[in-house]
Simulated assay, not measured.
Amino acid sequence: MKYYGKIAFVATLMALAGCQSSGQKTAANAPVDPEMDRCGASELQQYVGKPLTALETLRFEKPVRAIPYNSAVTMDFNLNRINFLGDLQGNITKVYCG
């Protein structure tokens, strides 16, 4: 008889554990601060993973800066400029304003 109480307790814990969310937020569902997204970088996240050379054929209304891996850039902060940050292989890892 005492096993039924333990089984019910374990079953309840398992049911509650299945109802929890992971709590991890991805970039796709994270809220966007309109002030920090003046350049529209949130709409250009589909370029992450593509080569930096893919930007050569595109036209943008705002200033754009492609930043290859380990390159020197100026420290001026321009929220209207779109930055494409590249990795060692030349692929885009981050798109952000600044």
Rank of each mutant, 00 (worst) to 15 (best):
G23N: 04
G40I: 00
A28L: 00
Q89I: 09
C97G: 13
D76C: 05
E61D: 15
C39S: 08
E61L: 02
F60L: 06
L55D: 03
E43F: 08
L58V: 12
E61F: 00
I92K: 04
P34N: 01
E61R: 02
G40E: 09
K2V: 09
K62L: 12
A54F: 09
Y69I: 04
Y4K: 03
D33P: 05
S71W: 02
G18E: 05
N80R: 14
K94R: 15
A11S: 14
E61W: 04
G98S: 12
N70F: 14
L79Q: 14
Q45A: 14
P31N: 08
G49L: 06
K50M: 14
A8D: 06
V10Y: 09
E35F: 13
G23I: 03
T57P: 01
S22T: 03
Y96P: 02
P63G: 10
D76G: 07
Y47L: 02
S22R: 01
Q89Y: 10
V64W: 03
L88V: 15
N91H: 11
V64Y: 03
R81L: 04
A8Y: 07
A15N: 08
A30I: 04
N83L: 15
R38E: 13
G90Y: 10
F9L: 14
N80M: 07
L16F: 15
S42W: 07
Q45H: 13
A41G: 07
A54C: 10
K25R: 08
L55G: 04
G49I: 13
Y69F: 10
F9W: 12
D33Q: 08
S22E: 02
K25S: 04
P51S: 11
